[in-house]
Simulated assay, not measured.
Amino acid sequence: MNAPILQARGLMRHFITNKPLFGAPSIVQAVNGVDFEIIEGETFAIVGESGCGKSTLARLLSHLIEASEGSVIYDGREISGLTGAELRDLRREMQFIFQDPFSSLNPRMTVGALIGEPLRIHKIGTPAERRAKVAELLRKVGLRPEHADRYPHEFSGGQRQRIGIARALATGPRIVIGDEPVSALDVSIQAQVVNILEDLKDEFGLTLIIIAHDLAVIRHVADRVAVMYLGEIVELGEAAEVFAAPAHPYTEALLSAIPIPATGARKVQTKIEGDPPNPISPPSGCRFHTRCTYVQDICRTERPQLRDMDQGRRVACHFADNMSLEGIRTDNQARPPAVARRFARYSAARASMTANTESAKLEKEE
């Protein structure tokens, strides 16, 4: 396994709202105590509902915004507080693909100028070499070299996102962060852009960090996945394991919402009731307990820690060790041996917890 190229340690970002007429200003806990590491060469996905803090976390990792607390370590070096030439060097090795390909491109600049701008800023090559580099990058993302003389408004959304990808690759970065890179595109175009990212990752030896809420896309491209809820990571592990056997109720509910083809296979739908709580005043204990199907008394009072399970899984749930969350499995799917063992070990405990929950509901109704 390769060494970690990027690490987050106790990372927090709190925003202060406008001060009201009376009283103190409120604090929005956008990212709250995040810890993880990203291995060089992998595709690492961060997923969750809108407003859970994914984009804020991506901007913290790339030093587009400063952290309130904690640290980001890139290639063994703390990057918080970098300025001037050191920050410029970091930008060369860590590039960003934004969600909206149109608003991220200057409409007054030609495509050639947009892609060549990072080369000019970092003083890479002569003018002739930069033009040749721009033409090469356009070919690699599926566009033609003559497109360099056109403006962003002359392209479709998918083509504009390809331009954004070419611009991100111009400086030869080691890490590329995509903040919802395909969510603004038609479904028919999303697969093309995802395939381009995967091909370029292999060709250039990139480390990809993908921010997304479309789990159907993440399922096919990610090596590992981190699930965020209300500013915290609630589950982290190998993508294949997380998708096959979610160990957190929130992950189970997200995965059960993925559409499946009409093949006759049955699918258990796990619904999340209500809206996410206000990040200004998050719930006590587990932040998900107000919407959790399996909530118990301890969930309301004690915050679960993100702790290690087997095979590199980390889960923030009091009952992750004794509850099977089989939400999206269908009867005709073959289970890997490790997953089958987990289901056998936890099935009795889950049945007991479900029975206790239903009994509590009946007593409350009576």
Rank of each mutant, 00 (worst) to 15 (best):
M1G: 14
M1Q: 09
A8R: 04
G10M: 06
R13W: 04
F15G: 10
T17N: 12
G23I: 07
A30D: 05
N32S: 08
F36I: 10
I39Q: 11
F44A: 05
I46K: 07
E49Y: 08
G53L: 04
T56P: 05
R59K: 15
S62N: 12
G76W: 02
R77N: 08
E78G: 03
G81Y: 00
G81F: 01
L82Y: 04
T83L: 07
G84K: 03
L90G: 02
F96D: 00
F96A: 00
S104I: 02
L105Q: 09
R108A: 08
L114M: 08
L114F: 01
E117N: 08
E117A: 04
P118E: 08
L119T: 08
E129H: 14
R131N: 15
A132K: 15
E146T: 02
A148G: 05
P152M: 06
E154C: 11
Q159C: 07
R162H: 06
A166M: 06
A170S: 14
A170E: 09
T171N: 14
I175M: 05
I177L: 11
D179W: 06
P181F: 10
A184P: 10
L185F: 09
I196E: 11
E203N: 10
E203A: 14
I211Y: 08
L215E: 08
V225E: 02
E232Q: 15
I233Y: 04
A239R: 08
A247Y: 11
L255K: 09
S256H: 05
I258W: 06
I260R: 15
A262S: 14
I272S: 01
P279Q: 00
P282K: 07
S284F: 00
R287Q: 04
F288K: 10
I298T: 11
I298V: 13
C299Q: 12
P304S: 03
G312H: 04
N322V: 01
G327D: 01
I328V: 14
I328H: 15
Y346F: 14
S347L: 08
A349C: 08
M353G: 00
E363S: 14
E365L: 12
